[in-house]
Structures are given as C-alpha cells and as structure tokens.
C-alpha cells in the first residue's frame, strides 16, 4: 500500500532523510521508533505533503500512485491521514463545522455525496462516545483550550470519521498519562482493518504495549537501521537506542 524507496529529504537546505526505504501492506500496523532528531516527524510531514520539505531523490507511492506530486488536500482525499503530535489550535472555527467541512471536501473530491449538518452530528456522536469526546467540545473552537489528552482523542475521532487507507500517527502518545493512552490506543485498535495500513511513530516503547505492531523499524540519522518484530521494542527499551545503533553501525 505504501512504498517508500530510497527517500532523501532536505529541510532548509539540510538533509534530514538520507535514503529511507519502507514498505507497508494493507491490514498491517508498522511502528517507527528512533532517537530524537532521527527524522521521524520529517517523515510524517513529507507523507502528508507539508511545504518546506524538499524531496531531493527517491519515491513515495501509495496504492501505486506517486504521492509526491499531490497537494495535502489531494492526499487526504486519497485516504492519507496524519494525526499530529501537536494538533493545531484554530480559534474562531468551531470543531463540528471543521469536521463537516473536511469530510465533505474529501467526499466531493472523490465524487461521493456530501453529508448534511444533521447527518454529520449523528455520525460524530456515534464515534465520539467511545472515545470520550464530549459533545460540548464539538461546539468549541477547534482544539482551543483542549487538554493534551482531549486533542489527541479528537485526532483519533477524525481518523474514525475520515476512514483513511493509510493512517500515520506521529507521537500520538506524547503528553498522555496511562489512562488517556489506553483510550487513544483502544480507539486506534478499533480502526484496524484489512484494508487499512497504519504507521505508528513513537519514541517510547510503552505505546506499543497497547498498539501492538506487526513490524518495527528503527530510524536513526535519516535512515532505517534496524527492523524486527514486536520484540524489538523490548530490546530497545532494555538496551537503549545507542546500543542498537552501535550494533547496526
């Protein structure tokens, strides 16, 4: 589903990804772990199509299509979803209005029929309940005044609403306590599907106890330096990144 081949990415003229290759099949959950500064967020932003990230060589294909030429809104319509590490606060834009506008923009781009306000409210209520997203949050401005946990839960609510083919979760666990983490993980696990691929980007092993991956990739200094099954996470926790990097150098 997602095929990244020898990707080199520069930010402000400095090369951050130095030949990253990765392949994720539908139905799988892959984790990307790595020390700070390894390029984890760069990878997620490049996949989402953010400005300022220059692909100097390599390719990214999603379901066989070249992603790199597509604008962020086009990628979203194709089914790419990036849950941000720091969800943006947007004063003046009510959450429910945003959700409806976004969903309908994607549907329009795909030639599907749009959903009306009442239908949207119903749909959101269904999905919001299990994630503990309170209805009054939906009336407030997007992410404004939300706690860290509430912001992350709203990201997962969006994932449930947009039903992406590829979901990238960028350090979804950062800033969360155990209880919030469990709620978020349950929400993510509920969205596992044979037609969906997930990339879970995390610094700590803890999240992977709750969202158990099929495969783990270790990203360091802009490249994948180690790969393994879920046990690799425990190995990393026991030994630390420095050890593993030495072993694979």
């Amino acid at each position: 589903m997602l095929e990244i081949k020898d990707l080199h990415v520069a930010v402000d003229g400095k090369e951050i990804l130095k030949g990253l290759s990765l392949s994720v099949q539908a139905g799988q959950v892959h984790a990307i772990m790595g020390p700070n500064g390894s390029g984890k967020s760069t990878l997620s932003y490049v996949l989402a199509g953010r400005d300022g990230y220059e692909i100097t060589s390599g390719s990214i294909t999603y379901k066989g299509e070249d992603l790199t030429a597509m604008k962020p809104e086009e990628r979203a319509a194709k089914g790419i979803f990036l849950a941000l590490q720091y969800p943006v606060e947007i004063p003046g834009v009510p959450t429910l209005t945003f959700l409806k506008t976004a969903l309908n923009s994607q549907r329009r781009a795909r030639g599907e029929s749009e959903i009306d306000a009442l239908g949207m409210l119903k749909l959101v209520r269904e999905k919001a309940k299990s994630l503990g997203v309170k209805e009054e949050m939906l009336k407030r401005a997007l992410n404004v005044g939300f706690s860290g946990g509430e912001k992350k839960r709203l990201e997962i609510l969006q994932m449930a609403l947009f039903e992406p083919g590829l979901a990238i979760l960028d350090e979804t666990d950062s800033g969360l306590d155990i209880d919030a983490l469990k709620v978020v993980a349950e929400g993510v696990n509920a969205l596992r599907d044979p037609s969906r691929a997930m990339l879970v980007i995390t610094h700590y092993q803890r999240l992977l106890n709750y969202i158990v991956p099929d495969r783990i990739h270790v990203l360091a200094k802009g490249r994948i330096v180690a790969e393994g099954g879920k046990e690799l996470a425990h190995e990393l926790e026991a030994k630390g990144y420095a050890e593993i990097l030495k072993e694979t150098a």
């Binding site: 199509g49 962020p72 969800p87 947007i90």
Partner: peptide, 30 residues
C-alpha cells in the same frame, strides 16, 4: 495566516482557497 493552521486544514482535505477563507473569517469573527 498561520501556516500551521493552514496546513492542518489542508491535510484534512480542505482545499487551499477554502482553508484560507475559513481562517480569514475566523480571524474577523470576534
């Protein structure tokens, strides 16, 4: 316009012109 906010809206599928419009109206709203 806040580039982060603009990217966030576009990354959720809202086309650029519409995303800009949303943010400008949000700015004037209060």
């Amino acid at each position: 316009l806040d580039a982060e906010a603009l990217f966030y809206l576009r990354a959720r599928g809202i086309p650029e012109a519409e995303a800009r419009g949303l943010l400008i109206r949000a700015f004037l709203e209060d």
